[in-house]
């Protein structure tokens, strides 16, 4: 349980951090809360040569209302997001998700930037950002770029970030007139999801007009259940919602693991979608 040897730097500005990363070469990695990276290092599954600790960069720690969207600094902790006043309307989903991550220690250390950059398909925030059609801002030596969440997650622990880039901000468009919920199924309170469903539902008078459904741990990346979303539009009864939920099978066969077979995962997703939609509308 002892990591392999590594160097450690603690920059005092983003520019300095970027410089350290570029000079540190391919095996240099930023570290934020450390709650995904350190466990991997302790098992020696990750062996960075240099850790650039961005945890002290206070100017990456904010939640701002930017008019049409909410901007979340990469270093916001899950705990801060869970109670952020700016997260209203559909964006409340981010707070609902953050509240269900890990345990209090994890929520006080883990950051949204780390969660997204880590690109673990079992992590909770990625599916939420995807369901909200969010985007991430990445800064590298050559400047800044904005990557839509839909293009960001490439595979398990693989993202569109280039080596040396730092994720600085997560953006989610403001949406009013909708309800949201995150239905997470796990064995123990602090566990990662076996399956989870992020739902953002616009409805009036019991009829759904627009639905966004993000799925956690149903594939190598967080995914949208687009067939379900399509079928939910116009749904006005429990039966119609249940039928729409059935279309989750269109996302393909999730991989089995120690906690759940493929078949059970699909079944859970269907049940959770049904419950999520009902909760988001209530």
């Amino acid at each position: 349980m002892i990591p392999a040897a590594f160097e450690y730097e603690r920059p005092s500005s983003l520019a300095e951090a970027l410089k350290m990363l570029s000079e540190g070469g391919d095996d240099a990695r930023p570290i934020a809360g450390g709650h995904s990276l350190l466990p991997l290092m302790r098992l020696r599954l990750a062996r960075p040569s240099l850790l650039v600790d961005i945890g002290g960069l206070a100017d990456l720690r904010y939640v701002r209302d930017e008019g049409d969207h909410i901007a979340i600094g990469a270093l916001c902790t899950h705990h801060e997001l869970a109670s952020a006043q700016e997260l209203t309307g559909g964006c409340r989903l981010i707070a609902q998700v953050a509240r269900q991550i890990g345990d209090p220690q994890v929520r006080h250390r883990g950051t949204i930037g780390g969660s997204i950059a880590h690109a673990d398909p079992a992590s909770d925030l990625p599916a939420a950002v995807l369901a909200l059609d969010g985007a991430v801002v990445a800064r590298g030596a050559g400047g800044s770029r904005t990557i839509p969440a839909a293009d960001f997650f490439l595979g398990p622990l693989m993202s569109a970030l280039e080596p040396g880039e730092i994720l600085t901000e997560v953006r989610v468009a403001k949406r009013v007139g909708c309800g949201s919920t995150y239905e997470k199924f796990q064995r123990r309170a602090q566990d990662w999801a076996i399956v989870a469903v992020a739902a953002v539902i616009e409805s009036s008078g019991g009829t759904i007009s627009n639905a966004a459904i993000g799925l956690t741990n149903m594939a190598g990346t967080p995914i949208r259940a687009s067939g379900v979303e399509e079928a939910l539009a116009g749904a006005a009864s429990e039966e119609a919602i249940a039928e729409a939920a059935g279309r989750v099978s269109e996302v393909g066969t999730p991989l089995p693991d120690q906690n759940a077979s493929s078949e059970y995962r699909l079944h859970l997703a269907e049940v959770l979608i049904r419950r999520a939609v009902a909760n988001a509308m209530s």
Partner: peptide, 12 residues
């Protein structure tokens, strides 16, 4: 490890 050997906590 404790990731997949599920020792419950007080929350359970």
């Amino acid at each position: 490890s404790m990731i997949n050997y599920l020792v419950p906590s007080a929350a359970e």
